[in-house]
Design a protein around this nucleic acid. Sequence first.
DNA 1: GTCTATACCCTGATAGAC
DNA 2: GTCTATCAGGGTATAGAC
Lengths: 183, 183
Amino acid sequence: MALFWEHGYERTAIADITAAAGVRSGSLYHFFATKEDVLTAVLEAYLQGLTPQVMGPAFAAAEDPLERIFAVLAGYRARILATEFRYRCPVGSLALEMQNASERARELVRENFAGWRAAIAQCVRDAAPALRENADPESLATFVLTVMEGGVMQAAAERDIARYDDSVRHLRAYFDTLERIDR
Amino acid sequence: MALFWEHGYERTAIADITAAAGVRSGSLYHFFATKEDVLTAVLEAYLQGLTPQVMGPAFAAAEDPLERIFAVLAGYRARILATEFRYRCPVGSLALEMQNASERARELVRENFAGWRAAIAQCVRDAAPALRENADPESLATFVLTVMEGGVMQAAAERDIARYDDSVRHLRAYFDTLERIDR
DNA sequence: GTCTATACCCTGATAGAC
DNA sequence: GTCTATCAGGGTATAGAC
């Protein structure tokens, strides 16, 4: 996972993986038939880690459903800073790299995105009493994921957290306009 | 440019490039010292093409400065559909792939992003009379680029234009809230 | 400037002993 | 299950004739 995230799939050689694991190629090929099987295993691990690693900590940090959304986004901000701008969303990066890859890999990217949006959409639904009636949870979740991916990409490319912060700030301003006026 | 865009930098071999060009490797290495020099030339070409290829046609399609922004975004929508969801922003894709690449390549990615944002920021400035006074052109341009990159990524990954359309629609709704109330 | 030919390394993957 | 050893192919890049 770390190697694919840091260098991408193509730039990571089997030899890099076995060296990092401290084993020889025979051991790796005992468990994985091909390099692409390693990739799908990594994407499956990301899917498994979505709730415990990404959503769980953020949801624990806030009670209010809308604040939970921005706590998730704050988590990505922390990752960017902790990695000194080397952070890229692993799913998003692989999504672009795997455009012409196996159907299984592409399906796992879709599932990762869908799971991420589902968690955010639930927050929007939980916040429904405070929102206008026409606020659509699914398309808003897509919008939040869009802002995260685009903001992370720009912050990493320019090594400037302001790109991410500006993006999230405008998203917050938009959410403010969705709140009921009579509240 | 086409090969890097379609398959990415790593997956494109020198032999692929020379075959597509109908020449032998000696010819390519007469003009480019290394493969990475080919990459920087491609990124320079994207920079050169920003105005004539991306901004120009969109700006010609609309007079109103805010409509020009959404005409640019409509251009990307058309590219997604015309390529049957194989379209990825070439700069964004290379930005993620080139994270650990040469400083020159990273600088060219930054310049491409900066040029894109500058054109959008100018639209916001031109629209200033219709907008609230606190509408900041630079951070709004960042936000527009964020939405484009994130929306294109999701649409390509899921082969569903709705991801892009939802993102742009919410961006439009946000811009609507930035307009002067007294107009 | 373009060609042929090739060096040389690294790639994913395999065979088979232990 | 893990190891050593290695294969066959493809990778970037070069040499040198024309």
